[in-house]
């Protein structure tokens, strides 16, 4: 019994002193905007979930925030589109589940770059399945595809 206490104590201590406001949020929306459009001087809100990135009077593109279910819990992510409706960048803002976080790997997300509503955007076709994160990889891919379809012609 004492072993349990011994074992649990360090972790409990860390969780107790960890800053309480610190969720496992990898990026805020503002950070994702900056990452997608570093040269933008302003982000004009278009609707509740999308912003137009602008530099002076020029529209650089659109960034859309969305979430999908992973296995059980939400994955929050952003999709940045260039004025031509092609994907500039996909970022995972939050991933809450214990398994399947590999969708956050930069190399996996990089596959979306350059794709548009004309692309297949399907796991096992132009997007790799992630072993051990099958549902998450399918659901994120489906989510990105929906965004490209809904916002692809509105990024200019």
């Amino acid at each position: 019994m004492t072993s349990w206490i011994r074992l649990a104590a360090p972790a409990a201590l860390v969780s107790a002193i960890a800053p309480p406001a610190y969720a496992v949020q990898y990026l805020s929306i503002a950070q994702a905007q900056k990452q997608a459009f570093p040269s933008a001087t302003s982000f004009a809100q278009v609707d509740a979930r999308s912003w137009k990135a602008q530099s002076g009077g020029t529209v650089l593109g659109l960034i859309v925030v969305d979430h999908v279910i992973g296995k059980h819990l939400y994955i929050d992510y952003t999709v940045a589109l260039d004025p031509g409706g092609r994907i500039k960048r996909v970022d995972i803002l939050q991933y809450r589940e214990s398994y399947g976080g590999e969708v956050r790997d930069a190399s996996w997300l990089a596959q979306f770059v350059g794709k548009s509503s004309a692309s297949a955007l399907k796991v096992d076709q132009d997007i790799r399945n992630i072993s051990g994160a099958t549902l998450s990889s399918h659901h994120v891919t489906e989510g990105v595809k929906r965004i490209v379809a809904a916002y692809g012609n509105r990024a200019r």
């Binding site: 805020s28 509740a48 979930r49 939400y74 929050d76 809904a150």
Partner: peptide, 27 residues
């Protein structure tokens, strides 16, 4: 989907809203 996350602290601050095309969150 939105109803599932309203009123509680979940998902956390900064959590985005779903897209108009998002599928139902059948929990």
């Amino acid at each position: 989907a939105a109803r599932a996350q309203a009123t509680s602290a979940w998902p956390p601050t900064g959590a985005p809203s779903p897209t108009p095309t998002a599928p139902a969150n059948n929990g």
